[in-house]
Design a protein around this nucleic acid. Structure first.
Lengths: 229, 229, 229, 229
DNA sequence: TATGAATGAGACTTCATTCAT
DNA sequence: GATGAATGAAGTCTCATTCAT
């Protein structure tokens, strides 16, 4: 009754494409006006579909947001893995940090909806939907890297320090996105300094750290033994 | 015109108290569910009044939020001035930074609604109400202090660096508030390290040079034992 | 307990005066915005009293309107009686009609609230409050005058013709009040022509009729025998 | 885009029908209680729809009223044109006036909501919505007819006289609608006399005037030179 | 399966009325 | 008696969701 098979494939393809369009539209609309102010109608329109089609894919508005969230989670993971992959330990850690921040900044710019998800998640915890929050995931994935690179960082503190780094960069990215030039980009440009200086005390070699060299680095190494509470 | 004075005072007092109750309730509700999801009805209920009373004081929901915002703006200014006041330049700058962060942390905890305002302001710029946004104000007030303390910070960069510091601390505070113990407080505890290390390169040799060296490192070692709260 | 008598008299006087102020204010406000849009608060304010005082005199908004209505009813009766009084039958009837219209026009201008009552009564019948509507009263009071002046008007038709005259003049007055110069006053100026020409066929030899004389009057006399449907 | 054509027609038809139902219901409700007292909920109920459907067609209550107004404006124009169309100048003008009044009376009876619009327009000028008010339109359309028929009416006075006629008839119609039998219809029946007698002095030939003949007409001619204002 | 008209719960807001002071 | 803050029913309007076509 559904017709020959070769028809069903394009049908599925069309369906898939429509789903993507809806997610993209949702990302755009959520980003522009926020979760609450975004109307399902506006999303459907932005996706050039009908409201009915939106509800064919998602049982309700929250589920639509959750799907968006999941999609970004995936993308962020991929992004992360790419940066982590082409990095062996010969690369100075500052460079890795820089690459990550750059990568995220690029991601932020190319995926405007990402910020919406990020912010909405920040706004209401009830919205934390599937699995963990994005930033938490990021921090977790950062830990093994830290383990290799920061011998002066006590294992127990890894999670905390990674979270600080992620949240701080996140804040700069959001700020940059909201506040346009010139202050926005200028602040974002400082993110690297902020993180590199923060992490420097935990690193072994001051492998060309932007934040200091020579004995100063050594000094920092020692003071890096923070006691979290 | 309203009758004997001794009568009018309690009347005003009651009115004043009710207004405070409404603002407090609004702070609570906004904090819990966010600006959009907060209903005026819920705020009235939380304030143990009728919806009509809420509208006696505020013409609409936005105005209620704006009043809340103004109230916090005032408090934050006061807080800032207190910290800045009892600080002469003999006090090591790291200590000043620490005091400020501690002050804000205390403020955050004692004023739950503050976070809501902060976040909502972050969410929609259209909501920026009276004068400047909170964080911007803070950054601006930080500048003269930076001018005195950080000779290696170029005047043109002051605003950017101050903004980075404010936004980063803001992010940690929000994170701490959302994520309960143990990670929340642990992250907040790191805020001092984050900011002090970030600013160190701009400071004089003093109690902690740019990247830190010699005795300065020792000083930091001590101050590194931060105790949040 | 209420104090000496000589105090109570000014008290009553003050009360009476306040009631008048409230009625005047109500007239003004009703006239400006209409019955529904008028708020009791606005009326109290216009009367320079408190809302509580308004409710001391009137149990509700409708009663306030009704009182206003009654007051105007009284005034209109008085006005009518004045015009009717200094008119003996030697005065040409056209002159009497003219005087009445002039009198009403003056009344309309001096009592702006009158129009409000008139219109509101026209708008919702539920509002007909005490006794009959104003215009009906007027028409009724016109009948004896018609009886003396219009011998060619059958007694059975008196009420109808009087009503037509009253309603037509009423319409012109309202139009004039709403539409400012130049059309408004111009239309009102025509009211006399309208009514005099309408009534002329019912009059006797036309005691100086502006609308015709001689045989024309006779012709009209015949056609004056209208058959009401 | 919406599927086969034969499907879309009933769909549109249903929509169209619903819109008509809403307008009809609005007419009824406005007529019964007036504009302000009419609730959108009541209108929806009267239209046997949901409040949401009302707002699908009209952005707000005022727009609903405006649409009603426009609809009647259209109908009134059509009615007018019909009457004017089958009237060449051989028809006695009194007959034309009579036909018009009869036409309007019929219209009033068949369209109960019309009165509501008419009255509400009379009540608040702020409500004058699209183009001109109804009565003004009528008066304007009457002018060319007057130009042909009433040579003794100075061009400058045409507008005023036409307005007087329209407003007077309007008043009779409203009165008739409000006051039931027997007075209502009786008054309306007099509208023709009222208008014909009013206009007679401006006409050339008393082409079978009900209000006079022969020399009487001449007399009236003279007095026809009214001075407006 | 796609469409979008229809639904109606619930949000914000107003204002007549009450009542403690 | 006067005052006006407080109350809350009721109105307008929005928008997530359903369902006939």
């Amino acid at each position: 009754m559904t017709g020959p098979l070769e028809r069903s494939i394009p049908a599925q393809a069309r369906s898939r494409e429509r789903l993507e369009r809806i997610l993209d539209a949702a990302a755009r609309v959520f980003d522009e006006v926020g979760y609450e102010a975004a109307t399902t109608e506006a999303i459907a329109e932005a996706a050039e579909t009908s409201i009915g089609s939106v509800y064919r894919f998602f049982p309700n508005k929250k589920a639509l947001f959750a799907a968006l969230y999941t999609r970004y989670l995936e993308k962020v993971r991929a992004l992360f893995d790419v940066v982590a992959a082409d990095t062996d330990d010969s690369v100075p850690w500052e460079q890795v940090v820089g690459a990550m921040i750059d990568g995220f900044a690029a991601f932020h710019e190319s995926e405007p909806g990402f910020r919406a998800v990020w912010l909405s998640l920040a706004l209401t915890d009830q919205m934390i939907v599937e699995g963990e929050a994005l930033n938490r995931q990021l921090a977790e994935r950062l830990e093994p890297l830290f383990a290799r690179r920061f011998p002066h960082l006590r294992p127990a503190d890894r999670r905390v320090v990674a979270t600080v780094a992620v949240e701080a960069v996140s804040a700069m990215l959001i700020f940059a996105a909201r506040r346009g030039p010139p202050l926005g980009p200028a602040v974002l440009a400082q993110a690297k300094n902020l993180i590199i200086r923060y992490l420097a005390p935990y690193a072994t070699t001051s492998s060309g750290s932007a934040a200091g060299a020579g004995k100063g680095a050594r000094a920092r190494r020692r003071s890096g033994k923070i006691s979290v509470r």
